[in-house]
């Protein structure tokens, strides 16, 4: 039992602001691990690549690597072929993926997401295994072997299609239906609504799909090796060879740097940087 005391006065406890003393844990300190991570695994490797690219084997600063890269027809051809293959793959993926994403997002077929799941599921199966299986399948039905370039494109489209479907589907399914109704209300038929409203409004999905397909297809040499019967070399393979077969880290780094620039340019072209702004407007 508490002792009964006579109440003189009761007042609410006032919390007074206290001065900060010494080290105190605040929200910004939570960023430290990420900062360390970025420094170790992004900034440092990038710095090393830049260092190797601009030095020769003895460690002296030189532009030899770039000169060699841009004067050698073989390496240049490889880059051009890589870009063309990636462009073809991206374009075919886009043409195939848009209708699929549109149907998945709009129709009742995808009620419960089962159909979408079927399209996305290959992404969870080992990538090399999938490529091998596809090659065997193509051989079985007799399509394989017409042309190595066509083979590679087929393989890449097969592997990267889900990466194109997913972002487009995501944008289309989140799109406010009142835009479509407004369009029809203002006199547009279904086709005009598709070209004038749906397509422009799904640009963020299309551009992130392009980014997700175009860039990996430039470097992913597993597919070009598997489907190209070892006869097609893409930029990724070129870099790999410099590091492993020729032990020329300097040239390898220079090619990697060139590839980085190509990617930044392609991202700028597809508006990948701006996608956030577009999303900011009512999407």
């Amino acid at each position: 039992m508490r002792e009964e005391l006579k109440v003189i006065n009761k007042a609410p406890v006032v919390f007074e602001p206290t001065e900060k003393k010494g080290l105190r844990f605040s929200r910004k300190h939570l960023c430290i691990p990420y900062g360390v991570f970025l420094a170790c695994f992004v900034v440092l490797p990038l710095a090393l690549i830049v260092f190797y690219a601009f030095t020769d084997k003895d460690g002296g600063i030189s532009l030899d690597n770039f000169v060699r890269f841009f004067t050698n027809t073989t390496t240049l051809t490889t880059v051009i072929i890589s870009v063309l293959l990636a462009l073809a793959t991206t374009l075919i993926c886009l043409i195939l993926a848009y209708p699929v994403a549109y149907i998945l997002a709009r129709s009742n077929l995808n009620r419960g997401g089962t159909l979408l799941m079927l399209f996305i599921m290959p992404m969870w199966i080992n990538f090399v295994l999938r490529a091998m299986a596809m090659k065997d399948l193509l051989t079985l039905i007799g399509v394989f072997g017409w042309n190595n370039y066509v083979n590679v494109v087929i393989g890449m489209v097969y592997d990267y299609l889900p990466f194109m479907i997913l972002p487009i589907y995501s944008v289309l399914s989140k799109m406010d239906k009142s835009y479509l109704e407004a369009s029809k209300d203002l006199g547009a038929n279904a086709f005009q609504t598709l070209t004038r409203v749906t397509l422009p409004l799904s640009m963020p999905g299309i551009s992130s799909g392009i980014t997700m397909v175009f860039m990996p297809t430039m470097t992913c040499y597993v597919i070009s090796d598997t489907f190209g019967n070892g006869l097609i070399t893409i930029v990724g393979k070129l870099i790999d060879e410099q590091f492993t077969t020729f032990q020329n880290w300097n040239l390898g780094s220079a090619i990697a740097l060139v590839l980085l620039v190509i990617m930044l340019v392609s991202m700028w072209v597809t508006g990948g940087f701006k996608s956030e702004d577009i999303r900011g407007t009512n999407l």
Binding site: A182, D185, L201, T281, N282
Partner: peptide, 12 residues
């Protein structure tokens, strides 16, 4: 023609 509840102005 309709004036929609949330306006539905085309953002693009």
């Amino acid at each position: 023609n309709t004036v929609f509840q949330k306006y539905a102005l085309f953002p693009h």
